Computed example of a mutant assay.
Amino acid sequence: MALLLACARLIGYSGPRSPSLAAALEFIHTATLLHDDVVDRSALRRGQPTANTIWGNRRAVAVGDFLLGRAFEMLVDDGSLDVVNAISRASMVLSAGEVSQLASHRQIETTEETYFRIISAKTAALFEVSCQIAGYLPGGNKATAVKFKRFGRSLGIAFQLTDDVIDYVSTSARMGKDAGDDFRDGKVTLPVIIAFARGSPADRRFWEDAMQGNKVSDTDFAHALKLLEDTGAIRDTLARAYNHGRVAKSHLSSFGNSRAKSALSMAVDFAVSRCF
């Protein structure tokens, strides 16, 4: 992944191991997307039909499994036990995050604590390990790996917070997904959690019905968006995304200025501004 390559360049490494590790991580990432689309019954990803829509669930899952197997074969060939341990742990965290997300589906009483635990496992874990393992390459050390890990975690959280806002404020033409997909699927994201907590009794009943799948029309979605705006849920979710972005950049402060550092900083800026 690009983050791994940029982190590797930040410590002065440009050898063959970083592209190979990046490819292995991309295989893992693609596998999780294939599996997620089956679990979520998604028909579109980035505006294109999903693999399960075209070839069916069984083939999509089988290809995902193959990619996972090939990825770990490449990691074994790399020969770093630190890298294998980091990615193995991240894979377990990702799986646990998927289970937690399924358990919270349509649960309007989901707390912010639970929400952040889920996105830390589902999204931040992959960002985290992608950056972390660059620290184990020549030119890095365990202290560097920790800095990269913390950078990736904060970046991943910022990315997911922005993604949750995108579902309400962006367009399918811009983002390759229909606005309101999460709303209609009953995903209790941070904007919903905030709006539900701050809403009137009538507003809270609306959210309860919506998350149970009883409010799925365009009119319902427009009302949901108004409630999010009136309660400041969109504004405050983005504020938290920007804060996590600032934290991410702070973990790069000990590194000297370079093109790689600028690229990582730009990645943070993109993560928190891509819905506009």
Results as ranks from 00 to 15, higher is better:
residue 260 A to M: 03
residue 180 G to A: 09
residue 157 I to D: 05
residue 101 Q to H: 12
residue 75 L to K: 08
residue 171 T to C: 08
residue 269 D to S: 14
residue 148 F to D: 01
residue 120 S to L: 00
residue 10 L to Q: 08
residue 157 I to T: 07
residue 206 F to H: 02
residue 86 A to G: 02
residue 41 R to W: 06
residue 145 A to C: 10
residue 129 V to T: 14
residue 207 W to Y: 04
residue 108 I to Y: 03
residue 74 M to R: 12
residue 36 D to V: 15
residue 228 L to R: 02
residue 250 S to E: 08
residue 164 D to N: 13
residue 275 C to G: 13
residue 261 K to S: 01
residue 196 F to M: 06
residue 263 A to F: 13
residue 111 T to R: 11
residue 241 A to M: 09
residue 71 A to F: 10
residue 229 E to F: 00
residue 253 S to Q: 09
residue 202 A to W: 00
residue 101 Q to R: 13
residue 64 G to W: 02
residue 103 A to P: 01
residue 178 D to I: 15
residue 54 I to W: 04
residue 5 L to E: 14
residue 86 A to L: 00
residue 154 S to A: 06
residue 129 V to M: 09
residue 173 A to C: 06
residue 166 I to C: 10
residue 50 T to W: 08
residue 48 Q to G: 00
residue 125 A to Y: 07
residue 2 A to I: 14
residue 191 P to G: 03
residue 158 A to R: 01
residue 113 E to Q: 11
residue 79 G to M: 05
residue 66 F to V: 15
residue 93 V to H: 07
residue 180 G to H: 10
residue 144 T to A: 09
residue 31 A to K: 05
residue 239 A to Y: 03
residue 184 R to P: 07
residue 117 R to C: 10
residue 57 N to Q: 12
residue 227 L to Y: 01
residue 250 S to G: 09
residue 2 A to K: 15
residue 72 F to N: 10
residue 9 R to S: 15
residue 155 L to P: 07
residue 129 V to R: 05
residue 27 F to N: 12
residue 28 I to D: 02
residue 99 V to M: 13
residue 147 K to L: 08
residue 71 A to V: 08
residue 242 Y to Q: 10
residue 265 S to V: 12
residue 4 L to H: 11
residue 12 G to D: 03
residue 97 G to Y: 07
residue 218 D to F: 06
residue 247 V to M: 06
residue 250 S to Y: 01
